[in-house]
C-alpha cells in the first residue's frame, strides 16, 4: 500500500467513514515507518478532544434573534394600504355602525368645545421640539457607544426624527464610512436613504460606494441608489465593477442597478 493510499484511509478513519476494524486491517498491511507520521498526527487529532468544551450561549442570544425575527415579520406583514371594506361591513351590523357614528359625533363635539387655546398649542409645539432635540442628542450619544446594539438603536432612532439637521446627517455618514460592524453600516444606509431628499445625503451615499468592502453593504447601497433614482451613482457603481475581488452576487446586483439607472 502506498503512503498516499494509507494517508487517505487514515483520513477516512478520522472522519468516521471507515470503522476501526477496517483501519486496523489497512494498518496491518502498512510498513511501520509509514505509520510513524500518522501516529503524530493522530495524537494531535485526539488531543483536540481535550480542549475546553463549548459552553452554552447566554439566553440573550435567543432573545436577540426573536426580536430581529419579529422586526422582519412586522415588515413582511405591514399593510400595503388597501382596506377590504366589504369584510369590515360584513362584521359590523347597522346598529353597531350607527352607535359608532353617534360616539364619533359626540366626541367631535366635545373636541370642538374643549379645543386647546393658542397658548396651549404653542406649549405643545415647544415640547415636541424639545423632544426632537432630546432624541437627536440621545442618538448622537448612542452612536459613540462600543456596543453594537446601542449603535443599531441610535441609527433606528434617526428614523423617528421628522427632519435631519447637519449634525445628524454628518454623524450617520461617518457611521456609514467608519463603523466596524456590517449590520450597523447596513441600517445606516437605510436610515440615510430616508433622508434622500437632501442633496448632501445623496452625495455622501454615492461617495461611500467605493469605500465599502462588505458585499452586504455594497448591495444595500446599490439598492438605495435605485430607490432614490440617483443617476449620479452610475460612475461609482461602474468603478465597483472594476474590482477583481467583487463578490459575484454583488456584481450581478450592481449591473442590474446600473441598467435601471441609465
Amino acid at each position: 500500500m502506498s503512503q498516499e493510499q494509507l494517508k487517505e484511509k487514515w483520513m477516512d478513519y478520522m472522519n468516521g467513514s471507515i470503522t476501526l476494524q477496517e483501519w486496523e486491517s489497512f494498518k496491518s498491511q502498512a510498513d511501520p515507518a509509514q505509520l510513524s507520521e500518522l501516529e503524530g498526527l493522530e495524537k494531535i487529532w485526539l488531543a483536540m478532544d481535550e480542549l475546553p468544551a463549548t459552553p452554552e450561549p447566554e439566553a440573550t442570544m435567543d432573545e436577540r434573534f426573536y426580536a430581529t425575527l419579529s422586526e422582519f415579520r412586522k415588515e413582511a406583514t405591514a399593510p400595503r394600504g388597501t382596506v377590504n371594506w366589504a369584510s369590515i361591513l360584513e362584521v359590523l351590523s347597522w346598529r353597531r355602525l350607527a352607535l359608532g357614528m353617534l360616539i364619533f359625533a359626540v366626541g367631535g363635539g366635545f373636541g370642538y368645545v374643549l379645543s386647546p387655546s393658542g397658548e396651549y398649542k404653542q406649549e405643545i409645539s415647544s415640547l415636541s421640539s424639545e423632544m426632537k432635540d432630546m432624541k437627536e442628542m440621545m442618538m448622537l450619544t448612542l452612536l459613540e457607544k462600543p456596543a453594537v446594539q446601542d449603535r443599531l438603536r441610535a441609527v433606528s432612532l434617526s428614523s423617528e426624527l421628522p427632519e435631519a439637521d447637519s449634525r445628524v446627517i454628518e454623524a450617520l455618514v461617518q457611521t456609514l464610512n467608519s463603523d466596524e460592524n456590517v449590520n450597523v453600516r447596513m441600517v445606516t444606509v437605510e436610515a440615510l436613504a430616508r433622508f434622500g431628499r437632501y442633496p448632501e445625503v445623496r452625495q455622501a451615499l454615492v461617495s461611500s460606494i467605493s469605500r465599502q468592502s462588505s458585499p452586504m453593504v455594497q448591495i444595500a447601497l446599490a439598492e438605495a441608489m435605485v430607490a432614490l433614482n440617483e443617476k449620479g451613482a452610475v460612475e461609482a457603481l461602474k468603478g465597483l465593477l472594476e474590482k477583481d475581488d467583487l463578490n459575484d452576487i454583488v456584481r450581478q446586483k450592481v449591473q442590474q442597478s446600473i441598467e435601471v439607472l441609465t
Binding site: 450561549p57 447566554e58 440573550t60 442570544m61 434573534f65 430581529t68 422582519f72 449590520n183 447596513m186 452586504m216
Partner: peptide, 16 residues
C-alpha cells in the same frame, strides 16, 4: 463574540 456572530448570520439569512 460568538453570540454576536450567530446573530449576524441569522440576520443575513433573513435579510438575504
Amino acid at each position: 463574540v460568538s453570540e454576536d456572530l450567530v446573530h449576524n448570520v441569522f440576520y443575513r439569512m433573513l435579510k438575504y
